[in-house]
């Protein structure tokens, strides 16, 4: 959970595009199916002496494999669900879940942002509107990368909007 400062408001919560979750899930599906295909080929085409499907051994092995792959699928989903970028009126927060035991939360204050760019690479990304947003900080070569986010143009616009507001506030307070 994000603890907001006084007067701070959440503008957008952005996640990776669903297509990236879909491609990762398809990868898990292929990994899941691979032993079954190899088994079928070994028994049917190559004539290897293995039990046919339907025996208690094959049920046991396949249900064990299914259970492990089911957990793996949800671990991929957990990465997707817990990876999030939050743009508030004061800062940009990047929450990066790396596996189950590694979590990184980085924060960038709006005042420190110098430039925001976005890039959309490829046909699928163009059609489905997702890409990377690069947030450049002032003074240093440090960069904040928001990868595979849905509608990167909107994210960029929102961040720039907050930079403009902050700049105006600072000028008025001088």
């Amino acid at each position: 959970m994000l603890h907001l400062q006084e007067g701070e408001q959440i503008d957008i919560k952005a996640r990776k595009h669903w297509f990236l979750l879909f491609t990762d899930s398809v990868g898990i599906l292929f990994l899941y199916l691979a032993p079954f295909i190899v088994w079928k080929l070994a028994v049917g085409q190559l004539g290897v002496n293995l039990p046919h499907t339907g025996t208690s051994l094959t049920f046991f092995l396949s249900s064990t494999w299914t259970l492990l792959m089911w957990a793996k699928l949800f671990s991929v989903w957990t990465d997707y669900y817990l990876d999030i970028w939050i743009v508030t009126s004061n800062r940009v927060v990047n929450i990066d879940q790396k596996g189950l035991f590694n979590r990184e939360v980085s924060t960038l204050r709006i005042e420190r942002i110098q430039d925001v760019t976005f890039e959309v690479n490829g046909i699928v990304a163009t059609v489905l509107e997702f890409g990377d947003v690069h947030v450049q900080t002032a003074g240093e070569s440090e960069e904040f990368l928001i990868k595979g986010v849905a509608n990167p143009e909107r994210v960029k616009r929102k961040i720039l909007g907050h930079i403009d507001t902050k700049t105006k506030e600072n000028r008025l307070s001088m």
Binding site: M1, A71, T78, L82, I84, Q97, L100
Partner: peptide
């Protein structure tokens, strides 16, 4: 593994 997964969903989920 499942306990850790579910813990993460409720602890860090938005």
């Amino acid at each position: 593994y499942s306990i850790f997964l579910i813990y993460h969903w409720f602890r860090y989920g938005m």
